[in-house]
């Protein structure tokens, strides 16, 4: 049997389908159109919300294959990989894409070894050769200094993980229909030598990636005592506060705030960076923002190359005035 069809790994948390699943549908749909084949979402979990499964179809999947068992409630590498391998055996997908999440980045390499598949990490661009079905996977490497395009010419399936937030989630399209298949997760697939015995939630981690507006602090802020200046601007704009790595490394803000290659990718409507130079690694995490504004004393700062609007000047003079002005405008609005 030959390998065919585009597959994505949808993720759930507490039975609810997660945003990354819809981002992968956007990617998968493009590839499926080009290759003239169908798109299937696989999902593992326990008591997965039925409306959410239907929504995967409404948003672009032609088919959903769900495997459910209490052992699959949370990600555990052994049962999840056994289930994915079961799917590979049964359906022979030509391509499997997953999010470059803590789940995807653990599960996919574990499976790729056993399936003798090529796996490309953290892709930002995916394309396909319509005739051969070869996936063209582009990803940053060597500290973001280069982009590499990678192919897997003679192994199937082809596997890739995709950076979260590197594309928009697929929207519902009226009138779509598709099949929801429940594949039995037999007991032999469910043994695990890892047990999840607890969970400690952290509050701040999600807000930055979900925000429509992001204000980023760079080393130009000079010391931690000056952070409140930027916090006030962020509050006035109703924005989440992020930072460059130099700010994080100095301990002025905590790691969940880091934007960039080794931090979070953000795709807000509006990003404003002050005292951020715009290193290639920082840009890797924010250049897909719709509108970018930069404030920097150095007229040649790299960040201006990706900005739509820039103010060349001292942030300590500009930011307070800007904050005040925004408050006024919003107050009147």
């Amino acid at each position: 049997m030959k390998y065919s069809g585009i597959w994505i790994l949808a993720e759930q948390d507490g039975g609810r389908v997660q945003r990354i699943s819809y981002e992968l549908l956007t990617r998968g749909r493009e590839l499926a159109e080009k290759r003239n084949t169908d798109l299937t979402a696989m999902i593992f979990g326990h008591d997965i919300n039925a409306d959410d499964l239907q929504e995967l179809i409404d948003c672009g999947a032609d088919r959903v294959v769900a495997m459910e068992a209490s052992e699959l409630e949370h990600f555990l590498v052994e049962p999840y990989s056994a289930c994915m391998l079961r799917i590979i055996e049964e359906y022979r997908p030509e391509i499997i894409i997953a999010g470059a999440t803590s789940t995807g980045r653990t599960l996919m390499p574990y499976v790729a070894i056993k399936a003798h598949a090529g796996l490309t990490a953290d892709c930002t661009v995916l394309d396909i050769e319509a005739d051969t079905g070869n996936l063209l996977q582009t990803r940053p490497a060597i500290g973001g200094n280069i982009l590499a395009t990678i192919k897997t010419p003679s192994h199937r399936p082809q596997m890739a993980t995709v950076r979260p937030r590197s594309t928009k989630p697929a929207a519902k399209q009226p009138g779509r229909s598709g099949e929801i298949i429940r594949l039995e997760a037999t007991a032999d697939l469910l043994t695990s030598r890892v047990r999840r015995v607890g969970f400690e939630a952290s509050e701040e981690s999600h807000s930055l990636q979900d925000a429509d507006v992001v204000v980023a602090v760079g080393r130009g802020i000079k010391k931690s005592e000056n952070i409140p200046l930027m916090q006030e601007l962020a509050d006035a704009l109703d924005a989440a506060l992020g930072a460059s790595r130099d700010v994080i490394d100095r301990g002025w803000m905590s790691y969940p705030h880091q934007i960039g290659l080794s931090g979070k990718t953000v795709t807000p409507k509006f990003y404003l960076g002050a005292g951020v130079s715009g290193s290639i690694q920082h840009l890797a995490g924010m250049q897909t923002a719709e509108t970018i504004v930069a404030i920097n004393t150095d007229p040649d700062a790299q960040i201006f190359n990706v900005a739509d609007f820039g103010i060349v000047g001292d942030l300590f003079e500009i930011v307070p005035v800007l904050t005040e002005k925004i408050r006024q405008v919003k107050g009147n609005g």
Binding site: H116, N145, I146, L147, T149, K151, P153, F304, V306
Partner: peptide, 17 residues
Amino acid sequence: PTRVVKIHKPTVARNCQ
């Protein structure tokens, strides 16, 4: 299984006012 087929420099440019 994988082959690096192309290496290029990231390009970034917008028209900054």
